[in-house]
Design a protein around this nucleic acid. Structure first.
Lengths: 140, 140
DNA sequence: AATGAAATGTAATGTTATTACATATTTTGA
DNA sequence: TCAAAATATGTAATAACATTACATTTCATT
């Protein structure tokens, strides 16, 4: 049991607040939108948000969608044996809906490219833009 | 012959200047860095750069690296039958060097995901971060 | 030359993110 | 326990990236 203690990450108050906001959003949220939502809870400056976001990303709890400068709670759980592979995102430019997906083939291809080119990859971003199923049907 | 005329895109002066800068850079450049480099050529405002960048991206001459807010000339040519697949980028966080790559397997997997999920993809961004071969050897 | 479309110029502002520094809280270990 | 060290927070200012709005010019076509 004691051997687990190091693994049990403890989130600080600000980190918990930011993560909770993102989890309840079920959609990407920008840093400044988070700041506004958390003002009632005492947030006053961007840095409070960005610091929490940095830590939550490092822990794998959230993702940054680089192409829209917004953040999303990770769709997967964070239990014991949960392996987090490379995540991909499909972003609907009409309605803003985002689907997270994982594809081990893509992961393997990226790893293969990295290996054969001597590139030491630490993180990746895969983002698709277009229209989601619903929006595509509602005529272009 | 005449049937080709519509296909021969003509770049404007500003677009040519921006593209030339990016091509000679052999590395990603930010919009404001481009603005500064082009001041001697008469550029005075960000919008002049952003407008040219938008058009060059639409034409496939350049790519935006979403994760670093910078732009790069496309590594491939733009001759007649040149098909431009999905491009991936490996960005070295140590030295800033960027390698562009194309992987048709990844392209197919993304297309397959999109098809089975009814997502109509229009563009994609694939960006790896880490250390390039040279930097990884110079010890972490 | 007159028209309309596309491109350009300019200013102001909006949005996203970081630096710098001060203060407070928590952890560690003597 | 208490002081030192490490971690987390607070606050202000500023930097970096991007767009809106509107006026003017250029260019292809009549």
């Amino acid at each position: 049991m004691a051997s687990h203690e190091k693994l049990v990450e403890k989130l600080t108050k600000n980190q918990v607040l930011v993560l909770a906001e993102l989890q309840s959003a079920h959609a990407p949220v920008t840093a400044y939108a988070l700041l506004d939502k958390l003002r009632p809870q005492g947030f006053r400056a961007p840095l409070q948000v960005y610091r929490a976001l940095d830590r939550l990303m490092a822990l794998g709890h959230i993702h940054k969608l680089e192409s829209i400068n917004a953040f999303m709670a990770c769709a997967h759980g964070h239990g014991e044996g949960q392996h987090h592979g490379v995540a991909g995102f499909a972003i609907c430019d009409k309605c803003g809906q985002v689907s997270e997906f994982a594809d081990s083939d893509i992961e393997h291809r990226l790893a293969a490219w990295a290996k054969s080119n001597g590139f030491h990859a630490e993180k990746s971003a895969i983002e698709l833009h277009g229209q989601c199923s619903a929006c595509a049907q509602t005529e272009a």
